[in-house]
């Protein structure tokens, strides 16, 4: 055990959210089949969500007993800007993946992220992003025939053009 752990910023909110979500899931599990039978499809979900609720309540009690840690702040230790930006970037990537296609989205994502994190020259960032995406594309698309969203670049025709050369 750590010596008298302190409550971190946001911990209380997180644990309350977890508890509320557990209650919601228990309600949803009850809705599957109620107390119909031991073999009902809702039996195990109800049991597990009930365990979640009990645990969440215990965790919340423990959290409330702890004193707040005043040496840490939300912005510095829990959600610094860099984390928020990264999460937003991944979300943007997922949103753009279908309309733009795999190749441009990935290059763009890497370009911005590497630049943002490393602050090195654009040339370096471009080389890293194009190189990485090219290698991933070769492995996934050409070797293992995983079709990524095509988007604005007519990948399918490029591949058949390449294969028809042989």
């Amino acid at each position: 055990m750590e010596p008298t752990p302190k409550r971190r910023p946001g911990e209380l909110v997180f644990n309350i959210a977890i508890m509320l979500a557990s209650f919601g899931l228990l309600y949803s599990a009850y809705g599957i089949s109620g107390f119909e039978a031991l073999s009902a499809p809702g039996a195990v979900p109800m049991a597990t969500t009930a365990i979640m609720v009990v645990c969440a309540v215990v965790i919340l009690r423990q959290t409330l007993r702890k004193g707040a840690d005043t040496s840490q702040t939300m912005a510095a230790d829990i959600l610094p800007l860099i984390v928020i930006v990264t999460i937003a970037m991944i979300a943007a990537y997922a949103v753009l993946l279908r309309p733009l296609g795999f190749l441009p989205t990935s290059v763009l994502f890497l370009l911005v992220m590497v630049r943002f994190l490393s602050r090195r020259g654009w040339g370096f960032c471009l080389a890293v992003s194009v190189g990485t995406v090219f290698v991933i594309w070769i492995i996934f698309r050409l070797i293992f025939a995983v079709l990524m969203p095509q988007g604005i670049i007519p990948e399918g025709r490029i591949v058949s053009a390449i294969t028809s050369l042989f």
Binding site: I90, F109, V114, L117, S118, I136, M148
Partner: peptide
């Protein structure tokens, strides 16, 4: 890490999609 982490993220996304 400034290079490795973005690459890991792209690999994660591609992996989850695939």
């Amino acid at each position: 890490r400034t290079v490795l982490l973005p690459v890991i993220m792209v690999l994660s996304i591609v992996g989850a999609y695939a």
